[in-house]
Amino acid sequence: MSEQQWPLWEIFIRSKQGLDHKHAGSLHAADAQMAIENARDVYTRRMEGISIWVVESRHIHASNPDEASSFFDPANDKVYRHPTFYDLPDELKYM
């Protein structure tokens, strides 16, 4: 069993209705069904979730850390992209 590892899965948990699924961690499982059950057993033992998504890790494509400066730094002086220049009525909270 140890020579031949089960594939790795990324686990996303929704903690309550209306919130997003958030990345909780990763684990090994033979198939999607087992990944969901393992996630249930590993990540929702203390009432952390009401919904689980699993994605096999190999399906996740990530940005290259070496390209971080060209990817992300150019945004840091474009403050006008934040919608902070509008006058909002007082009743509107959580913007």
């Binding site: 069993m1 089960w6 684990l27 090994h28 499982a29 059950e37 393992n38 057993d41 590993v42 033992r45």
Partner: peptide, 12 residues
């Protein structure tokens, strides 16, 4: 357990 995840599952 044979793997960590199943160790936890059976312990649960």
């Amino acid at each position: 357990g044979p793997v960590l995840e199943q160790d936890i599952a059976l312990s649960n």
